[in-house]
Design a binder for these strands. Sequence first.
DNA 1: CTAAGACCTGACGCTGACGTCAGAGGCAAG
DNA 2: CTTGCCTCTGACGTCAGCGTCAGGTCTTAG
Lengths: 123, 123
Amino acid sequence: MRIGGLATRAGVSVRALRYYEERNLLASERSPGGQRQYPDSAVDRVRLIQQLYAAGLPSKSIADLLPCVVNGEATPELLDRLSAERDRIDSRIGDLVSARDRLSTVMAAATANWRTGEHCRPR
Amino acid sequence: MRIGGLATRAGVSVRALRYYEERNLLASERSPGGQRQYPDSAVDRVRLIQQLYAAGLPSKSIADLLPCVVNGEATPELLDRLSAERDRIDSRIGDLVSARDRLSTVMAAATANWRTGEHCRPR
DNA sequence: CTAAGACCTGACGCTGACGTCAGAGGCAAG
DNA sequence: CTTGCCTCTGACGTCAGCGTCAGGTCTTAG
């Protein structure tokens, strides 16, 4: 598969894929003419990269952790990294939950005001 | 309180506070000499801003929602915005949870390999 | 009054994850 | 062989949330 097909199937831009290669997240074979060739498995790999990006990991961390995530093997150092990143994600989740609760509280209060006749006019 | 005191108490940089003002997140009175003056309540306000930033809201959204979060009042449009942002946060939480679970799974697998004698040598 | 901080307004720098544009080459169809 | 689409490699642009530096002003302790 060439880069355009992979981009379409994985739902990312061609530019993003070249960027992933630049950052050593995604390798590619080259055709005699110099064009990138990917196996089907690259689609899942790109989705995995996207998932880790979505979790807020920088590309450097992803590059460090990807081999081990793919192979299911790890050195003690990598286990530490994994554990640290997991903890960071957990703490981010905590931040998000408290922010969401704050918004929910505000919404509930506003809706209550609404029903008790204050409508939306400031005093 | 002047800007340095607020920065210290709220745990952010002076530059950040000026940036918040520029983005209309935080107002200030001015002394005759032109220096910013803040009430004590500004500390909580800054912490709130930080919380919303931590939740991934861009400053524009924060600027839109802050009055209503502070007043507890909202127009129907603002309620929609609140609801939309809460949903976005929920979906981000979902992303983070699945990423964390993925890492946990990998860690469990690696630890299992470890105990069954594979250690950390790739095949 | 004076010196030392704290503060002021620009304005440029930085990082990450790409977007975008330019100019040139590969490749399958007709 | 040409046409048209895809791809290539630079390389500069973008956007947010500040960091940082320059050159000047305000405030306050002594």
